[in-house]
Nucleic acid binder design. Structure first.
Lengths: 247, 247
DNA sequence: TAGTGGTCTAGACCACGGT
DNA sequence: CCGTGGTCTAGACCACTAC
């Protein structure tokens, strides 16, 4: 970082080489939380256009190695937060150090995507309860629980209390829960979701979809969205201690 | 798509609005596999610079809705492939329609990252076996198995045969397997990995790390890397049928 | 070889954060 | 207010694919 290294033209693109150089720099010369020089200075120092430098920074941000904020600056990220996705508590009842806050609860016609996944009629009514998941004092994910009104007719109880959503799932589980299936995929945060996650629209998120089956139908669906840059989802069936991620 | 829609300046960035417009277009007017007009034509049609249009296309590619290939064109992607991550076969023995091919096998000093995760000395020797996972006739992920030579001294057997790696794990499982822990996080494909996945460097991948514990140590580690644009990882404990992803 | 997406430049202005 | 990252432009050339 101290050197005024001119990026050599090799077979690989400049921005990719630049990423490698920056990666070595933040690994060796910067600590987590430290602020990097601004983009204009960095681009000058490496002798590239600002757009090219930004391409490298965008890569590193996608990898969760940097956090950038408009008006503030670019800081080196710490190691990813480990989010427990235990089979037993389905990620809904409270867990370890991170707690959850109720965002809102509504009852409305089911969105098209959700209807397809739950096998509901297009206009069916569903309860929706959203919760914000916190870890280390920062919002790390948004959970969204869908339950058809046909399954649980009691509406207002869902809305009022933070714990009721958990009760609903526990209720379902003891009654006729035949199984659970879960998938993980990459998505991007759109408008409101992005706002709740304190990220710009288009940010990469890990989408965990959990379907609870009862009586041959999907009785509940949880769509949890986690910041891909700061989270690692832990599915350990047993808490075998693995050393924390090597940065 | 037929209209020469000028993107209006609203509160949201042009590229984001453009993404929305393109998303509606490919949902309503294009089928999977169909080729879009080229970037220069699209940018002209929407009255924006090519770089701005490309920002929108990059978003859609990250979301797995488009595939772009240099020299060829931009095509509409099909629904994501569902990759089974069953607890029982650990993703290593062969499964359903997708099979696996041996890439290579080596015995070498353990990489720093892996050493940290397995709790090995820095210079310890480990066997490494890599396999390519196929689904629907395309490479969808790379699995990389690490086993310390101290645990399994038989070297050459690992290299020769595709099935031996599975045997090693099965062997470990029946002997002293105390538990398994697994995590999922976002990563990017670097040089060789990118090549094996037939993707450019920097492409988003889902990294599944599975640690097998025996006698208080990590006896084996599997790092599986899947194309984030084309894969959805299914962790269903029981195969509850969920309707395939609503595109 | 023609056409595609990929890279890169050198500017400009805007929106936000902290002072 | 100033400095930051975010957006956008109008070019240019390169690397690859398909024909």
């Amino acid at each position: 970082m101290a050197t005024t290294a001119t990026v050599e033209m090799t077979a690989e693109p400049k921005y990719w080489h630049l990423r490698t150089v920056l990666l070595q720099a933040i690994d060796s010369e910067f600590a987590a939380g430290q602020t990097l020089p601004n983009e204009r200075e960095l681009s000058a120092r490496f002798g590239v256009a600002r757009a090219t430098l930004r391409q490298a920074l965008e890569q590193l941000e996608l990898e969760g190695r940097l956090h950038r904020k408009r008006g503030a600056g670019t800081v080196v990220a710490g190691p990813r937060l480990e989010i427990a996705m235990s089979t037993h508590n389905e990620g809904w009842p409270g867990v370890d150090l991170g707690d959850r806050q109720l965002v809102d609860g509504t009852t409305a016609p089911v969105p098209a995507r959700i209807a397809a996944q739950m096998g509901l009629r297009p206009r069916a009514m569903v309860h929706r309860v959203r919760r914000r998941q916190l870890s280390m004092r920062q919002t790390v994910g948004i959970e969204c629980l869908y339950v058809p009104r046909a399954v649980v007719p009691r509406v207002p109880e869902l809305l009022g209390d933070n714990r009721r959503a958990g009760l609903v799932l526990r209720h379902l589980r003891h009654h006729a829960l035949e199984g659970m299936s879960r998938s993980v995929e990459l998505g991007v945060a759109e408008a409101e979701e992005a706002r709740l996650l304190e990220r710009p629209p288009g940010s990469a998120v890990l989408v965990v979809t959990t379907a609870y089956a009862a009586q041959g139908r999907t009785a509940a669906l949880v769509v949890a969205t986690y910041r891909a840059d700061t989270c690692r989802l832990a599915f350990g069936d047993e808490p075998v201690s693995v050393a924390r991620s090597a940065s």
